[in-house]
């Protein structure tokens, strides 16, 4: 089950003297348990910084990030991370990649193998267990990446432009798959993307950040039932609304 995330008056600067090094300024955001939230905005708006703060790779300069009421410490298995393509361990096969987390946390071999096999089925990669990442297509690699992040059964799934490097068709296929997986294993999802369409198609809520310094510009709740029609009137109206907020 997912956990709620509370981002409270978070400011992040990378260099104290330089004003431009202000990546995020006074950002507050509450994400409910099991909510799917996308963060969109132009390059340099601090989307990834915000994600890295939740993941624990970065610490806020001021303010705090709480997960299930607890302040975030270092990165941990309670927050699964899916990166853009190329973050799978190329020296491990698909199933070994998925088992990486459980194995290092001391889950017995038989148990973790069974879990991994279950995840392979969840992401529909049956028959590709023993392939190395280089032998898999971009979409398949991201399926493995999602399964790997889920293997620790995290409360939260953090996704940093996971489908950014995929072609259009594979991308929409993966969006559908992600929703299916999210239905199967309820998690709180924070999804960073450049694509307004993608954000609208997937999320319960779309958060718009503006750059230099990164500030929270707008929040749009997407109440349309899933699966959503990208060409529907309501969808297009929301697209326009977010587009205006960004520019």
């Amino acid at each position: 089950m997912g956990k709620a995330i509370a981002i409270e008056h978070v400011t992040k600067r990378f260099n104290d003297e330089d004003e431009r090094a202000l990546a995020l300024e006074d950002v507050s955001l509450h994400i409910e348990a099991n909510e799917f939230v996308s963060i969109v905005g132009r390059s340099g708006c601090g989307k990834t910084t915000l994600l890295n703060l939740i993941a624990g790779f970065l610490q806020p300069s001021s303010g705090q990030v709480l997960i299930g009421g607890e302040p975030v410490g270092s990165p941990g298995p309670d927050r699964g991370m899916v990166f853009q393509q190329g973050a799978l361990f190329p020296w491990l096969t698909a199933i070994q990649n998925i088992e990486f987390g459980p194995r290092n946390r001391g889950v017995p071999r038989r148990q973790r193998r069974a879990q991994a096999q279950e995840l392979i089925e969840l992401v529909r990669l049956d028959g590709f267990e023993r392939k190395y990442p280089r032998e898999l297509s971009g979409g398949m690699q991201q399926r493995v990446a999602i399964a790997r992040a889920l293997a620790n059964d995290p409360d939260i799934l953090l996704m940093d432009e996971p489908f950014g490097a995929l072609d259009e068709l594979t991308r929409s296929e993966m969006q559908l798959e992600l929703l299916r997986i999210w239905e199967a294993r309820k998690k709180t999802v924070v999804f960073v993307t450049h694509s307004i369409m993608e954000a609208l198609y997937l999320s319960d809520r779309v958060v718009v950040l503006s750059p230099h310094p990164g500030r929270l510009r707008a929040e749009v709740a997407v109440t349309l039932p899933r699966p959503r029609q990208r060409s529907s009137q309501e969808f297009m109206a929301m697209y326009e609304e977010i587009h205006r907020a960004i520019f």
Partner: peptide, 19 residues
């Protein structure tokens, strides 16, 4: 990114070095 991935999967410093 490999190191970040390993950290978020809960690997220790030693595990990250070796694996």
């Amino acid at each position: 990114v490999y190191v970040f991935a390993a950290q978020s999967l809960g690997a220790s410093r030693r595990q990250i070095f070796v694996q």
